[in-house]
């Protein structure tokens, strides 16, 4: 039977048996959303929860793909098989995308499981599909699961919310640290990496980060037992990669020992529920707005019989009513 027409139940069984094609297919179902994605989520959840999830983000050109490929090689050397979700933007005009992160991971793609993910134009969708995809990879035994995103925007903050450990990569001399701060990435960072540390300005970038950490109330300061380290790497020749791996491990142990992992897990569940609901409400809202009753309300506002505020309130009451049925 072709995998293309296999029901999710079969695919999950095959994936748990180690069939990589089935894993690939399950990720597609998760990405498409809908009923199949929900089935996959339910079926994989009992098997998930073992993998450490690492988010890696930073501005374009920071050398993340090369760094990830070296981290993956180091992880494989340590005896586990990781998976990577490499997120790249879709074109806002056409919905298409060119996903090129595998090129830099060529030497590890026979061992690790690497999946390129396009944002498909809506951050909300990604906020749903990334936790779902992570759950699949976790369930079938990959660990850690690394989520790599490009850029320093809201998408990155959303995506890294799915991670246990978030690594923010900056490069010297590009004002990366400032950008990361503006985007709110400093609040979510557990580890900072100054990549291309052989370049001029590397120590300036490090100092910028240290200053920003001092002056802002960030994650590390919430917990007196953990302060985000700032590491220097040169992913071209692999300098500092072992230190990043070790820092990820240190953070993992911190999460376990301090009870912070439970806090983060709850936060992640809350975030996923919130996203699912938000998306559902968006859909319901869109449906409601397309109904004739809405048109009638608009007519009344246009004729001056009703205020905009009252029209919106009436619609809200109608929507709440319909949910209660």
């Amino acid at each position: 039977m072709s995998l293309r027409t296999s029901p999710p139940e079969d695919l999950v069984a095959r994936a748990l048996d180690g069939d990589r094609r089935a894993v690939g297919r399950l990720l597609t179902l998760v990405e498409r959303g809908g009923a199949d994605a929900e089935t996959v989520a339910s079926l994989t959840q009992p098997h998930a929860g073992r993998a450490h999830v690492v988010g890696i983000t930073g501005s374009p050109g920071a050398g993340k793909s090369t760094l990830v490929s070296q981290l993956v090689a180091g992880i494989v050397d340590n005896g586990t098989v990781p998976a990577v979700l490499a997120v790249d933007p879709s074109s806002p005009l056409t919905g298409g995308a060119i996903l090129g992160d595998r090129v830099r991971m060529a030497d590890v793609d026979g061992v690790a499981f690497i999946r390129s993910v396009a944002t498909r134009g809506h951050a909300g969708g990604l906020a749903l599909s990334i936790p779902g995809a992570t759950r699949v990879l976790d369930a079938v035994g990959y660990s850690p699961v690394i989520i790599e995103t490009v850029g320093v925007g809201q998408v990155e903050v959303d995506v890294t919310a799915a991670a246990d450990t978030t690594v923010v990569v900056v490069t010297p001399g590009m004002g990366d640290a400032v950008q990361a701060n503006k985007a709110g990435l400093l609040e979510v960072a557990d580890i900072f990496v100054v990549n291309k540390a052989d370049r001029p300005g590397a120590s300036d970038a490090r100092r910028d980060l240290e200053l920003m950490l001092e002056f802002s109330h960030v994650t590390g300061q919430e917990n007196e037992n953990y302060r985000p380290p700032i590491l220097m790497t040169n992913s071209l020749d692999g300098d500092g990669v072992a230190e990043v791996l070790s820092a990820i491990d240190t953070h993992r142990r911190f999460l376990d020992d301090s009870g912070e992992r439970a806090v983060r897990t709850r936060r992640r569940i809350r975030f996923e529920i919130e996203n699912r609901l938000a998306m559902a409400f968006d859909v319901t809202l869109a449906q409601r707005l397309a109904e004739p009753a809405t048109e009638a309300l608009i007519d009344r506002v246009a004729q001056g019989d009703l205020s905009v505020v009252d029209a919106a309130e009436q619609l809200r009451q109608m929507m709440l009513g319909s949910r209660e049925n």
Partner: peptide
């Protein structure tokens, strides 16, 4: 790669 992207496809470029 660009033609396919501009037609709305997702192109995984291996180089």
């Amino acid at each position: 790669a660009r033609i396919l992207r501009d037609a709305g496809m997702e192109v995984v470029y291996l180089g």
